[in-house]
Design a binder for these strands. Structure first.
Lengths: 205, 205, 205, 205
DNA sequence: AATGAATGAGCCTTCATTCAT
DNA sequence: GATGAATGAAGGCTCATTCAT
């Protein structure tokens, strides 16, 4: 799946990166606050620190901004999770990976919300690209789980690998989606412990 | 939490109910297709079968329509789940309840998606009301779980009751949110079996 | 060639006709003054006597307005020329027809200018429709000329019929296009006499 | 009428000429294709082969480009017609001049169209200058006609001289404006013959 | 109670022009 | 002299909402 491309009239590639960073950073704030549809391009430009004309030197449509935002969040998540790519094939390694993932979500809770609530507004091609990235994250956990299995540290039906991976992601998203309910009752640490136990005991023989 | 009230200029309460039913039924279709923001009030009126003027005799703002839709979906879900309110305190009863819930979600998948993706656009008061309903559903499962526990059929820490209930809801929503990925690999039956085992084995001693 | 259709959201067909009349009448004034591109839709609405929103109940794009204007002018011209459709097969009858045509152009000089200078901005389909109408006018004169020939009152090669008809139209348009130069030196009457002589003597044996 | 002046910040007069040549040459292409209003200054700069900033070193406004284009076309036409300035006072000489003029138009048909359809967008002063040039061309033909008359080769009322000259120009423009209709029926040669006969027989005793 | 024409604030986007480098 | 990033006024168009009939 090729990266969805956002056209810019500006030639200096470095500047384009910098400006898009500004756009994305500003837009998330606004999207968190009012959602994609209620945010105007003028507000986005203002928040990014330049004029509406300049904004449109770096994007072609408002939807491009949404894509930029989603793309940035994913890359950030991926980057933060990349450190997990260790070779610890124990269940403990899995636990750590899950915990790390929850942490990332906890820190980027707002961004997650935006991404999941607004990505449906992406144009088709961009949406497919984002879904691909989502699958990549599922795969990342599938790999970790399989390594545990191959090392004989986890016993689990082959059908359940994918489901468990999905489940890890979803339980993480739950911490973001339902924080209005969950944070009244649980700390991140407690939530992590309970969920991880649920997942791992659930799949263990 | 009092029900969020939608003002109408029409006196005949029965007619109001009937018309709102029409509005909601038509609007869901549109929201499923294009989302709340991309759907116009004119389209809603047309789908409902009457004029834009008439639409505004039964609602005050477009957001009222969204509320009507969310409210209707919740009521439908609640109604379908109400049959579960039995006194079967066995783990098997819990299994059946979960399965029933998944079934409902499977049948109303589109409506679920709408509700969860668009409810953030509700005005504050209405949003709170909807969240309340969500919590009521969590509670419904908490009650079933507690009954199992009190009957000695399930052993589980007190902290985990609420979380397990949330978990049931979320795993159900997952079937709706991630159908693009999950339905390629699982049937509803298989999904139900695996998830239920996960949940129940996870919480059992 | 089917009439190019302009969509309207308003159902009352009579009202649509009335409003479009208003739009066209107002728009010509503005187009005469500033041309199509320099006229804004807001100005068109204001000149027509209603709000921008109302304007867009009767057209879909700004180009529709241009089409309305061109269509109206053509119909007006055609209506005014329709009285010529007599059965006078003499050269005198041709003279009268030409004179009548020049008169119409003289009275609608501004409208003519607009039509010929702006019609290139019409969307393709509408442009073709307008050209068709132009050809119909050529044909109208061809018919009159042929009748003269068949009655033995005019002798002219078959190839030259069409060209003479075009020539009549163009010499008429010349009175509109070059008025800045011609009106200094000629009255309409004098211009008509000279041109007609030129045309008729030119084609006569 | 003094030549309309286009200001430039660049001192080197030779460079200015060269650059403006580039601008004009590129712009005609674009104007032919999309018209003056739909062509952007960026496109003009690109087509000319340099940056938008550089473009504005040689013009002050977009309208200056239009003026440059119109001026260039006129000069080209004038240059091509200058060879006609012979001393052949026969009717044959007039025929040749007309034929030569039609040829030029046939070759520069697109440019003609641009000039006549877009010159109304020129600022007032520039428009007057262009009209002056148009009159100069009329005069050029008037002179040829008068020479024929004085040599006793053509008999024509004094009033008709100017009109005939105008007519020659307009019949030439007609070949450009109405090519969509005329070229289906006539070759340039045939068109030239018929039109010239019409003009000359028409004015001859 | 129903209709649908009218309204206008406000949105996204373009593009001529400027100016610091 | 050349460049191209920045600007913001202005344009076309939409759509939630109202109100006279």
């Amino acid at each position: 799946m090729p990266k969805h491309e956002v056209k810019s009239t500006v030639k200096d590639e470095e500047l384009v990166q910098k400006r898009r960073e500004q756009i994305s950073r500003g837009a998330v704030k606004l999207f968190i606050d009012k959602g994609f549809h209620r945010t105007t391009t003028r507000e986005i430009a203002k928040e990014a620190g330049f004029s509406i004309g300049t904004l449109y030197e770096y994007i072609r449509t408002k939807e491009d901004v949404l894509y930029l935002v989603c793309d940035n969040i994913y890359n950030e998540v991926k980057f933060r999770l990349s450190e997990l790519d260790n070779n610890d094939n124990t269940v403990e390694g899995l636990r750590v990976a899950i915990a790390r993932y929850y942490e990332v979500i906890d820190q980027m809770s707002d961004e997650f919300l935006v991404m999941y609530q607004e990505s449906k507004s992406l144009p088709n091609e961009a949406l497919r690209y984002v879904l691909t990235k989502e699958l990549e994250m599922v795969e990342q956990f599938e790999i970790i789980i399989r390594k545990c299995m191959e090392a004989g540290n986890l016993h689990i039906g082959p059908d359940e690998v994918s489901l468990t991976a999905h489940h890890i992601l979803v339980s993480g998203q739950m911490w973001s989606f339902r924080r209005w309910a969950l944070r009244k009752q649980y700390t991140l640490q407690r939530y992590t412990k309970i969920q991880t136990d649920l997942i791992i005991k659930g799949v263990e023989k």
